[in-house]
Design a protein around this nucleic acid. Structure first.
Lengths: 214, 214
DNA sequence: GTCTATAACGAGATAGAC
DNA sequence: GTCTATCTCGTTATAGAC
């Protein structure tokens, strides 16, 4: 194996090890040693390749998030109504429980409290998801009677933050998190009904919304 | 000062110190020494009074959550429609940014990953909030056309988890979190409109909901 | 009940051999 | 580029003086 390939391999192992360690033990279980053990690599190599543990965490988180978002881009692109978005959200939530990117982001976010370096890396990674969600929301809302009331950018952040919260919750109370998601899904039917109103009811709703909005 | 009073005082200082330390530095910045410093108390007293750091965290979290929930009980009781609930939620979110109980719970939840003892304490504390939210939701939903569609227990968990997520988000991206909340608030107007439909539209909606539900 | 001192260990990080 | 060895510091936890 060439030196370059060996370097790349070690860096990859370390990044994977960092992600796996966060998933398994949370941000407070992360250390240079625990990562190195998971990666099957010498501890000192973390500092040689990344300079510090925080730096490794940041790039690992960013790289893995990029990959996950990339993996979903096509599926996001096909979403054009609320029902499809809900289905995708549910699938994403289940698949990410396996791949674990949402959990990792949640843990990074927790570690970001009082650690500006981690905070910035995490913010950048989260923005990757948010940008994707915002695009879809913008598309869907344009065709909906509530479209002129809603703020896609803000909503995208609210959605992402909720995913974070649910994923974090699931670690301590799996059944509770499941019940919460099921309840939301059930309630989202309401939005679908609104979305599928006939033209008359639709106009009436629009008028009412205009009245309510300040 | 009597011995009992002195004991109580020390325990109180340690619990307050634990909460303050979590708020300031996150769960990964918590240690026996950092807590003791914040509390202005000798480090060894943590082990004398609580046995371990985890034990201290658990009881501190539970005690402070009890107090916060208690402080909101009366205000929860007066809520009888969605608009009032939204207002209370917003107030709670802002006041808790100061008192910090939601942040603490979020950090505890993060620390609970792979630490069953913390997980149990956190779950118990969260349930205090959930129970309160569930009561209100049950009351409101009973009077709403979507009431028979919704699951108050599940919804309460979803709401609480979202609060957690937003609060965690706010540490890394304050503006983003604010935008997210504002967008949700705006959209919630939709639910209010549905809630205030006339009797005819209300019956139509109910019929549609029945059709959608599987 | 509270303190000092200390044991036993894990942390981040670096130096230097290979 | 990777390893071993090591430094320095912070960690949990305990023993024992007061």
């Amino acid at each position: 194996m060439s030196k370059d390939a060996r370097t790349a391999e070690t860096r990859r192992r370390l990044m994977d090890g960092a992600i796996d360690t966060i998933r398994a033990h949370g941000i407070s279980g992360v250390s240079a040693r625990s990562i190195a053990t998971t990666a099957g690599v010498n501890q000192a190599l973390i500092f040689y390749h990344f300079g510090s543990v925080d730096e490794l965490l940041g790039t690992a988180c960013l790289t893995s998030t990029k990959a996950r978002v990339e993996a979903y881009r096509d599926r996001f692109a096909t979403v054009s109504d609320l029902r499809a978005l809900l289905n995708l959200g549910r699938a994403l939530q289940q698949e990410e429980r396996a791949a674990g990117n949402v959990t990792v982001l949640a843990q990074m976010l927790a570690g970001a409290q009082g650690d500006p370096k981690l905070a910035e890396a995490t913010r950048t990674a989260l923005d990757l998801w948010v940008a994707e969600i915002e695009l879809v929301l913008r598309r869907i809302l344009a065709a909906s009677p509530v479209g002129e009331l809603a703020d896609p950018a803000g909503l995208a952040r609210a959605v992402a933050a909720s995913f974070i919260g649910v994923e974090l919750w699931a670690a301590a109370d799996p059944q509770g998190a499941e019940d919460g998601l099921a309840a939301l899904e059930q309630l989202a039917v309401l939005a679908e009904v609104v979305d599928n109103l006939g033209p008359v009811a639709r106009r009436a709703l629009k008028a009412k919304l205009r009245g309510v909005r300040q």
